[in-house]
Amino acid sequence: MCGARLPAAERGRPPAYCSRSCQAKAYRRRKKERAAPAVVPKGAAAPATVTPAAAGRRREIAEAVWRIAAGRGLESASMREIAAEAGVSLRVVQYAFGSKHRLLVEALRLLHEENEARARARVARLPDPTDPRAMLRTVLGEFLPLDAQRRMALRVFVAYYVRSLTDPALAEVFLHSEQPLEELVAALIRQAGPDGGLESGLDPWREADLLVSGVTGLGLDVLHGRRTMAEVWRTVDYHLDRILGPA
Rank of each mutant, 00 (worst) to 15 (best):
residue 1 M to D: 10
residue 6 L to E: 00
residue 9 A to Q: 12
residue 10 E to P: 00
residue 17 Y to T: 11
residue 17 Y to N: 13
residue 19 S to Q: 04
residue 24 A to P: 05
residue 32 K to D: 11
residue 37 P to M: 02
residue 46 A to Y: 04
residue 47 P to L: 12
residue 48 A to M: 00
residue 51 T to M: 04
residue 52 P to K: 05
residue 53 A to F: 01
residue 58 R to C: 06
residue 61 I to Y: 00
residue 63 E to T: 00
residue 66 W to F: 11
residue 68 I to K: 03
residue 71 G to M: 03
residue 74 L to N: 08
residue 78 S to D: 02
residue 78 S to W: 01
residue 83 A to P: 03
residue 87 G to V: 03
residue 103 L to Q: 08
residue 106 E to H: 01
residue 106 E to C: 05
residue 108 L to M: 12
residue 108 L to W: 14
residue 112 H to E: 13
residue 113 E to L: 12
residue 113 E to R: 10
residue 116 E to R: 11
residue 121 A to E: 15
residue 123 V to T: 06
residue 127 P to H: 11
residue 132 P to W: 07
residue 135 M to I: 12
residue 142 E to H: 15
residue 143 F to H: 13
residue 148 A to M: 01
residue 149 Q to G: 10
residue 149 Q to F: 15
residue 151 R to I: 04
residue 155 R to Y: 00
residue 156 V to Q: 05
residue 158 V to I: 13
residue 165 L to Q: 14
residue 165 L to E: 14
residue 166 T to Y: 05
residue 169 A to Q: 15
residue 171 A to G: 07
residue 171 A to Y: 04
residue 171 A to P: 03
residue 174 F to Q: 08
residue 177 S to W: 10
residue 178 E to Y: 11
residue 185 V to F: 09
residue 190 R to D: 02
residue 191 Q to N: 14
residue 195 D to C: 12
residue 195 D to K: 12
residue 200 S to I: 03
residue 202 L to Q: 03
residue 202 L to T: 06
residue 204 P to E: 04
residue 208 A to S: 15
residue 217 G to T: 06
residue 218 L to D: 01
residue 228 T to P: 07
residue 231 E to T: 02
residue 235 T to L: 12
residue 236 V to T: 11
residue 237 D to Y: 03
residue 243 I to W: 02
residue 245 G to I: 03
